[in-house]
Design a protein around this nucleic acid. Structure first.
Length: 606
DNA sequence: CAAACACTGC
């Protein structure tokens, strides 16, 4: 404890001000106090500075008070900031904006928007800082309507040419899934910087338009003199991950290394995720091991990735390593852990982890966690338990769709028509994934031999005009990408060759003990494609799904990107690649030839 | 004095 200053001492220090201000305990100059507030790192000092400011009479001035408000906001004491604000006689635009921003930082964007309304009520005119802040609040809340209103306000107030305001508008429209409006703002911008470009790229990726994001990235490299920063690199890597474009991902990795951003944790996390999604878990692992102090995000990314590759034990090992290193798991980490249990048949362990969430880790399980558990139970055939659990969960909209969709596909897998009917009813009644619910239910009927039901459902779909969008998949061979649509019946003489190969693969997998559970190949005869066969490769070892590839002659094959994981699969992949290369050039997209620095494809960073 | 862009789930 610091010894309290002797009164005489204070008087001595404060003597220059005494006569002027008649405040006996004031020993700060205004400039000094402001500087102290700006550098203040702890609450005790802040409170002491606050009391000095009161005693010195500085809080009659808006400028000094604004500094105090910002000091409390930096120390994450929004309520104290609010108190100071409430006591102000004339808060100006900066006071309002600071407090509004404070609420956004504190995770209360709704309050921020409410305060903005109050500010207008009090006839304080917002400026570009205020607009950027409230647009950001709309972005967090995905509040398109309010966002558009504020956009109109921006135009009227004459801030439509401000770089930061426009960038936040692009971001806001992106987060609200209005890609066209985002692009419109972006196109009308008189000047753009790396942030505005990154916002637009991220908008594309978050709205399932990864190709456009990559296109924009190459335009940036051609048109702009600026170099990508680590935000932009993380964004482009994320775009590659979303598309499963390994080659582009490697090119981006090359750019990362050349620009010296490979020490950025965020970029490293993005790379870990990208390589895993592109089927190269070993690369992810290498990147991960090079991160000196991995945070919860790269750990979670690795846990999820290993789980998806069916490496449950390894995934749980990473989790315990993370706990040992005192890195606090979050809700997403537990989604990964439960996923690991689910995909490796570790149901009892999974239930224990679920139990430990609340008790040991202070995280209350959400609908997403229960969905993992439903999946975990259902996959190993404990469908009745899974169904009971599903019924007890409050899940709406997207969460509900995931929950019932999970149960539905497991019901099909195990031929449980009764539960499939209930699950698809839930989806259809809540108007979620209606088309795929119909298709899956119909497939379940077909699997159970209930052809009439399957047929009736198909007719019902046709009558009600429900159309299932054809699934599509794509492959990268060399630097070209080939896209295939399910139901696309151009002719392919090698179709049967592929089927035979996969059948053989199944036999070899069985020989090596990959049987039981949901492994092996499953043939389902369905009405949908007029007596065509649907061939699915349901192996958890190969479970990084890459959608369906339609090889003509009506055979749809689910190709897994990481077929390369085992040697037999590698053969299959090679053959399929050869066939594809010979006979299908469907679409050749996004060649990466626009790097300013000349380097196109880096093969040698390993 | 106050503002925009990034990595983990499905």
């Amino acid at each position: 404890m610091r010894k309290p200053l002797n009164q005489n001492g204070i008087f001595a220090l404060a003597s220059p001000y005494l006569s002027r201000q008649n405040k006996p305990s004031c020993f700060h100059t205004k400039a000094h106090l402001i500087q102290q507030l700006q550098n203040c790192k702890d609450l005790t000092s802040a409170i002491s500075l606050h009391s000095s400011a009161v005693k010195c009479g500085f809080l009659y001035e808006t400028f000094t008070t604004n500094h105090l408000i910002n000091c409390y906001i930096k120390l994450q004491r929004i309520n104290l900031a609010r108190q100071v604000f409430e006591e102000m006689s004339e808060p100006n635009v900066v006071s309002w904006t600071s407090l509004i921003a404070g609420y956004v930082i504190a995770g209360q964007p709704k309050m921020a928007l409410w305060l903005f309304g109050e500010m207008l009520e009090f006839s304080v005119m917002p400026n570009e800082f205020t607009f950027a802040t409230v647009i950001n609040a709309c972005s967090i809340l995905a509040e398109l309507r309010t966002g558009k209103e504020i956009h109109a306000h921006v135009e009227v107030s004459g801030f439509q040419a401000n770089l930061v305001v426009c960038s936040s508008l692009v971001d806001m429209y992106g987060k609200c899934n209005d890609v066209n409006s985002a692009r419109q703002v972006f196109d009308l911008m008189g000047c753009r910087n790396v942030v505005s470009w990154t916002s637009m790229m991220t908008t594309y990726t978050q709205n399932a338009q990864g190709h456009e994001a990559l296109q924009l990235f190459s335009e940036f490299n051609v048109l702009m003199n600026e170099r990508p920063n680590h935000f932009m690199l993380a964004s482009v890597i994320n775009a590659c991950a979303s598309l499963g474009k390994l080659v582009s991902g490697k090119v981006s990795h090359g750019a990362v290394i050349r620009s010296g951003h490979d020490s950025s944790d965020v970029v490293a996390s993005a790379l870990v995720d990208m390589y895993a999604k592109c089927g190269c878990l070993d690369y992810s692992d290498k990147i991960f091991k090079r991160i000196p102090h991995p945070s919860v995000i790269p750990y979670t990314s690795m846990i999820v990735s290993t789980a998806k590759y069916g490496l449950g034990k390894q995934s749980l090992q990473l989790f315990s390593e993370m706990i040992d290193r005192r890195i606090k798991p979050n809700d997403v980490t537990f989604v990964g852990v439960l996923h690991a249990c689910s995909h490796s048949g570790l149901a009892d362990e999974g239930l224990q982890y679920l139990e430990s969430m609340h008790g040991k880790h202070g995280i209350s399980p959400s609908a997403k966690h229960y969905t993992c558990v439903v999946d975990m139970l259902a996959r190993i055939g404990r469908l009745d338990e899974a169904y009971q659990l599903a019924k007890s969960i409050q899940a709406e909209d997207n969460d509900g769709a995931l929950l019932w969709g999970t149960l539905l596909s497991a019901s099909r897998l195990h031929g449980r028509v009764d539960i499939a009917v209930e699950a698809s009813k839930q989806l259809i009644d809540s108007n979620q994934q209606v088309a795929s619910a119909y298709v899956t239910l119909s497939n379940t009927y077909a699997l159970a031999g209930e052809w009439e039901n399957a047929h009736n459902l198909r007719s019902k779909m046709k009558q009600s005009g429900v159309i299932k969008e054809p699934g599509c998949s794509w492959m990268e061979i060399k630097d070209s990408t080939y896209v295939f649509y399910a139901g696309d019946v151009s002719s392919c003489p090698q179709g049967s060759e592929v089927v035979n190969l996969l059948k053989e693969l199944e036999i070899r997998m069985k020989e090596r003990g990959y049987i039981g559970g949901s492994m092996g190949l499953v043939f389902v005869d369905v009405e949908e494609e007029a007596k065509e066969e649907i061939l699915s490769l349901h192996s958890e070892r190969l479970a990084l799904g890459f959608g369906l590839i339609n090889i003509p002659r009506g055979v749809t094959i689910r190709i897994m990107k990481n077929l390369r994981m085992c040697r037999d699969c590698h053969e299959a992949f090679k053959l399929i690649s050869e066939i594809v290369e010979r006979d299908f050039v469907v679409r050749d997209v996004n060649r990466f030839h626009h790097f300013k620095n000349g380097c196109c494809i880096c093969r040698d960073f390993w």
